[in-house]
């Protein structure tokens, strides 16, 4: 597949053009543009990264360095529902590992994996900055605080039901 295959829409390109103006230099727009690409294309393939380098006038290496440094940029596709369980101190002290184990069991996969139906990816993450609500699970970046095995099971069941309904 060539880099030409991945393209931002005209609206996106217009959005990027305004975005770039908010910074002293175009490279500052790289992270927001990576988020856009991730939203539009699901993950950041090498072709997407090349395309972005072209759009912002950066070298591919400048894009690669940023994509690989930050954990929230993904070079691989993941499930439609990304479940991120915080297991850092505050959450650990309030049962995060037990919760994570329970969720893996419900999902039938190991930590870091994606369910075969592509609905869920589960990952362990660092402190989410919400220790007052420990344990915390982010679902596609929506915080679920004081999560319990039951509340997570309910969420998983709900998502599965919805997906089943559509199919």
């Amino acid at each position: 597949m060539s880099a030409d295959a991945v393209r931002f829409s005209e609206e996106r390109l217009a959005e990027i053009e305004t975005l770039v103006k908010r910074y002293p230099g175009p490279q500052s727009a790289l992270m927001p543009v990576l988020y856009m690409a991730q939203e539009d294309f699901g993950y950041l393939s090498m072709d997407t990264q090349k395309m972005i380098a072209g759009v912002l006038g950066l070298r591919l290496m400048q894009v690669r360095e940023v994509v690989t440094f930050y954990t929230m940029f993904r070079e691989q596709p993941c499930g439609t529902h990304l479940l991120e369980v915080c297991t850092n101190a505050g959450c650990m002290l309030n049962g995060a590992y037990e919760l994570a184990e329970h969720m893996c069991k419900t999902l039938g996969i190991k930590m870091g994996e994606t369910t075969p139906d592509g609905l869920f990816t589960i990952a362990e993450v660092e402190c989410a900055g919400a220790c007052g609500g420990a344990p915390v699970v982010q679902v596609n970046n929506i915080y679920h605080e004081k999560a319990t095995p039951d509340s997570m099971d309910a969420l998983i069941t709900h998502v599965r039901a919805q997906a089943g309904g559509k199919a």
Binding site: S28, A29, M31, L34, E65, V66, T71
Partner: peptide, 29 residues
């Protein structure tokens, strides 16, 4: 004065002020 919200992307070190600056310049923090 113009004010812009800029999202980090999962790197604790970007809280350190000079790493934050690097990150805001579009580089690894």
């Amino acid at each position: 004065m113009h004010l812009t919200v800029h999202r980090g992307a999962g790197a604790y070190i970007c809280g350190e002020e000079t790493a934050l600056i690097e990150s805001l310049e579009g580089k690894p923090g």
